[in-house]
Design a protein around this nucleic acid. Structure first.
Lengths: 344, 344
DNA sequence: TGTTAGCACTCAACCTTACCGAGTGCTAAT
DNA sequence: ATTAGCACTCGGTAAGGTTGAGTGCTAACA
């Protein structure tokens, strides 16, 4: 357990380091005010803090920098208790727009967040979790070409063009789509495969001639991809951070950002509320020098999305956490109202 | 006009520099074979080439590097005459896929191109030019919420959700969409606005009650954005190039890549066929250290898309031009066949 | 016992200097 | 017209010196 003085010193060091990116020395702390002890005393405390693993040195006679454990302590014990549930009304002007679409809100928010923080923002749209199928459609483009369109109740649209082999009758497809629409309307996306394989299949066998072939085609067209909405804002922001002068780091970061699957995994086991992941707590090597702060926003019935900000471990935790908290709350509020007005 | 020997030397210097990224000296050229003159002779020629502006020095006693004018000469006089119209059959396996969609082909091609070259590839989908509207649709999500979907004959799908104000009758919207579909089917996207404002408006005034309001809503939902398909592959590839050790360059590059509008502008006045833009010939400051090679591919009736590869000015022009040429041809061929089989 | 002044020590960062080698330009010889 | 020879230039690297911010430890002090 840390004494008050140790906690104070730890806090000052972290605040200072977050601002300057340079190791912090005892003299600097003593001068900065707040701590009214001599450098020597502070040095002793710093040595203790280092022994306990909260601080590190870059070399034997350097000042101290926070360790990941230090940041963790700071986040858990210093910031959280002082967080206010303030509303910043950041998103007011977005929500007001008449032509809003969930995906647009989400995208705009990502941009705003990275502009305000100078970090990279990632937003994961509402989970497939409770999202339901609204409608399936096939629009023929020509004799052998069509677009399959899938619409969810959140207004998300997936589409995929495909060629219809001559062997398959257009009428069969049409019948099939009708059956599918009839049966699958309102089914959560996550259960689509199940319902398809049980109820629907038998039905289709009855009515559709060349069932086997047509079914495999449709299945491929409609359900081959899991719809995920992921938006990234301000990727080039991290380049302004001094810790990323090294091109190798930049490279691994960008490679990661281009890989949707990995990104989705990043968020896989986040609970509701705020989450801070510091450095190696992260599961990917590529961002072991990063911290990530995530918050969840909710839609009406348990649907849940994630907002995240990604920056160096030397991140402005307090600012970002306050901001993210506010934005998540505002999104939840706005979406609640929206659902109430427009809900099915 | 260059003598044969000067041309040879220029060529050797450029080839060498493209490979090594280091200034090329007279001794190295003499040793490499091909040029059977002494270093002194070569030095004289190099001095002449520098006077003419084809070569540069990085400092007074360094070897020579090609100037932009040098690359330009090389591209115009050395490469073009030797280019064969070879078919590389790179895309065979993509085209074979049954479930292909133009947008997918395009995206896959972008990836393949950047993998093969280690540069960044940009592909611009077929221009709106001749793309025609296939169908408009409105799918209601709830009482006051709907998705507007626009489908083109190339299989491209645009969508946008919007809220329907209480004042507007759903039946009005439906009528309207019917009229629009009837009248706008087959109209090139580029003329949509015109046709809307002339023919369609009068028709709608006749049949639709609260015409003014409904119309402005629909217009916003369907036609507020120009649909552009732009795909970028291998953004992080350029980080492997030694000239981009400087983080500032990386930053300006990425900032540019995140800005669709600028990217589209980049391609604005490209003619058919191959185009090479070297360094400052480019209109954007952010990529003044880059060269861009573009090729156009065509669809059936004058629709045209652009493929581009973006790399350092020290780019493997010959390889990239050969490759790009082949890919563009193969795309054109494949799309021609596709159109013949599936065309309307 | 907790705090602080003093002091020797460490090490990154920076500067200077020296030197090497790849390269040039020019001149004179072939 | 070509080339050998030579003085010169300059980036790059390595070695040594200096500075200053910082530490740990000891001993004195409240």
């Amino acid at each position: 357990m840390l004494t008050d003085r140790q906690l104070l010193i730890l806090q000052v060091i972290i605040d200072e380091f977050i601002e300057s990116a340079h190791p912090v020395g005892s003299r600097a702390i003593s001068k900065k005010g707040h701590v009214s002890y001599s450098p020597a005393t502070i040095r002793n405390e710093m040595a203790d803090l280092e022994d306990m693993g909260y601080l590190e040195k870059t070399h034997s006679s350097s000042g101290r920098i926070p360790s990941e454990k230090g940041y963790r302590y700071y986040v858990d014990h210093v910031i959280v208790p002082t967080m206010t549930q303030s509303k910043l009304n950041i998103m007011e002007h977005i929500i007001q727009d008449d032509f809003f679409e969930m995906e647009e809100i989400v995208q705009k928010s990502a941009e705003i967040l990275s502009d305000l923080t100078n970090y990279t923002s990632i937003i994961l749209g509402p989970e497939v979790f409770e999202t339901k199928l609204k409608q399936l459609q096939i629009v023929p483009l020509s004799q052998h070409k069509a677009v399959a369109i899938l619409i969810t109740d959140t207004g998300h649209v997936e589409h995929r063009s495909f060629t219809i082999p001559v062997e398959i009758l257009a009428s069969d497809l049409e019948k099939m789509v009708n059956i599918l629409n009839d049966r699958l309307h309102g089914v959560p996306l996550i259960h689509l495969q199940d319902v398809l394989n049980t109820e629907v299949v038998t039905l289709m066998k009855m009515y559709v001639q060349d069932y086997e072939r047509s079914y495999s085609y449709l299945k491929h067209a409609f359900f081959s991809e899991q719809p995920v909405n992921i938006y990234i804002g301000g990727k080039s922001n991290i380049l302004t951070q001094p810790e990323f002068k090294d091109v190798e780091k930049v490279r691994s970061f960008y490679t990661m950002m281009e890989n949707k699957d990995e990104l989705v995994q990043l968020f896989s086991n986040m609970q509701s509320g705020m989450n801070v992941t510091i450095g190696h707590e992260n599961k990917f090597e590529a961002i072991k020098d990063f911290s990530m702060i995530t918050a969840t926003y909710s839609l009406d019935k348990g649907q849940q999305g994630t907002i995240a900000l990604l920056g160096p471990t030397r991140m402005e935790y307090r600012k970002v956490m306050t901001l993210l908290n506010a934005v998540a709350n505002e999104m939840t509020d706005a979406l609640y109202i929206w659902y109430k007005n427009n809900g099915q």
